[in-house]
Computed example of a mutant assay.
Amino acid sequence: MKAVVMNEPGAPEVLSLQDLPEPERITETQLKVRIEAAGVNPIDTKLRSRGVFLPAGLPAVLGCDGAGVVVETGAEAGEFRTGDAVWFCSGGLGGVQGNYAEFVLVDSSAARKKPASIDFATAAAGPLVLITAWEALFDRARVTAGQTVLIHAGAGGVGHVAIQLAKQAGARVLTTVSTTQKAEFVKSIGADEVILYPEVDFVEAVNDLTGGRGADVVLDTVGPAVFRRSIPAVAHYGDLVTLLDPGQDVEWKEACNRNMRIGFTLMLTPMLRDLPEARAHHGEILERCGELVDAGRLRIEVAGRLPLAEAAEAHRQIEAGHLQGKLVLLP
C-alpha cells in the first residue's frame, strides 16, 4: 500500500510517499479499514518537527483522524461488518500506524459508523476536533444552558465545532477571530458575539459584553500567551480550559482570587496511556456528534482537500496558520 512515512524529525520535506505492506489484524477487536480520507491536525506537524511520542516510534506514519470502509473485522468487533463506512481518531503518534495511508487497523471501540449525510473527506476532518471540543466543554468545564462561553480562535478546527456544541447546550457564545471573513463564518455557525482580536482587546470586550462579570467558561485553543491573558476574562467561580501547556510563568494570583477552576484537555491521552474505557468514551462522543451532523445541527468545515502525496504541503499550510476549518488528505 501507499503511505506517507516520516523517518526522522524535521521540516515538511521529511514526509515521503512510500510503499509499505498492508497491516494485518493482531486482535479480534480490530477493524481493517481502507482509508478514503485522513484529517490533518496541528499535532501532526508538531510530531513531525520535534519527534513522535515513543522513543522507538520511527519510522512513523502520522495522522490521527480517518474515515474509510471496513474491509475486514475481528470476531469481537461488535456491530461492524465488512463494507461499513466508519470514522475514528486512532494511531499516528509513533509506534501505531496512523492514517496517512491506504489501509489502517482501528480498534472497534474507537470507531463509529460515519454520518450518512457527509462525505468521507468531511468525516475525516471531524473526530479529533469534535472529541477535543466535547471533552473540554462538557467533561471538563461542564457547560450548561444559560452560561456565557468564550471560545478562542473560533474559525479553527476545534473552535468552529466548539461554537456549535456550546450553542447546542444552550450557552451564549463569544469567540475571537483574526479577520472579518472569519467573523462572518463564525456568525453563520452560531456565534452570538465576535471579537476581532487584532483590533480589540479581548479581555475588555468580554467584560463589556458581560457587564463586567466575565465568561463562565473560556476555552483556550491557542497557547500560553492567550491562556495568561484569559484569566481576567473569566467570571468568578468560572472555568478556564486549555488544550496546551500554559508554561512556567503564569501569574496565578488573580485566578486564585476568582476561585477559578483550571482544566486541561488532551484527547490523545487514551492512546498515549492505553486507557480502553477512555477510548470507548471517544467512540461514544463520535456517535453523539454523528447524530447531530445527520440532524443538520453540526457542521464540519473542510479548509482544503489534497492528494495523499501532498502531505508535506498540508503541513506547510497548517504551520502558516489562519486556516478556516480542517485540511484533509485523500489517498
Rank of each mutant, 00 (worst) to 15 (best):
A3E: 06
M6L: 09
N7I: 03
N7L: 02
P9Q: 04
E13G: 11
L20F: 11
E22Y: 06
P23W: 11
E24Q: 15
K32S: 08
K32M: 12
I35W: 08
G39D: 08
V40H: 06
K46S: 13
K46W: 11
K46L: 13
V52T: 05
L54K: 15
P55C: 08
A60H: 02
A60V: 04
G63K: 04
V69P: 00
T73C: 13
G74N: 02
E76Q: 15
G83C: 05
F88I: 07
V96I: 15
A101P: 11
F103T: 11
L105E: 00
L105F: 02
V106M: 08
S109Y: 11
A110S: 14
R112T: 15
R112M: 14
K114I: 00
S117M: 04
I118T: 00
D119K: 02
A124Y: 01
I131P: 04
D139M: 10
R140H: 11
V149H: 07
V149F: 03
A153D: 01
G154K: 07
G156V: 01
V158T: 03
V161P: 00
A162C: 03
I163D: 03
R172P: 00
V173R: 05
T176D: 03
V177R: 04
K182H: 08
K187E: 15
S188Q: 06
A191R: 06
D192Q: 00
D192E: 04
L196C: 05
E199G: 07
D201K: 07
D201R: 07
F202E: 03
E204F: 06
E204Y: 06
V206S: 01
D216I: 12
V222N: 04
A225D: 15
A225T: 14
V226N: 01
F227K: 07
F227D: 09
R229Q: 15
R229K: 15
I231L: 04
I231R: 03
I231S: 02
V234Q: 02
A235R: 11
L240Q: 02
L240C: 09
D245V: 12
P246T: 15
G247F: 09
E251C: 10
E251N: 15
N257L: 15
N259L: 14
M260S: 13
M260R: 09
R261G: 13
T265H: 02
L268H: 11
M271L: 15
L272G: 10
L272A: 12
L272D: 02
P276W: 09
P276L: 06
A280C: 09
A280Y: 07
H282M: 13
G283L: 10
L286T: 03
G296F: 00
R299V: 10
A309P: 02
G325S: 12
K326M: 04
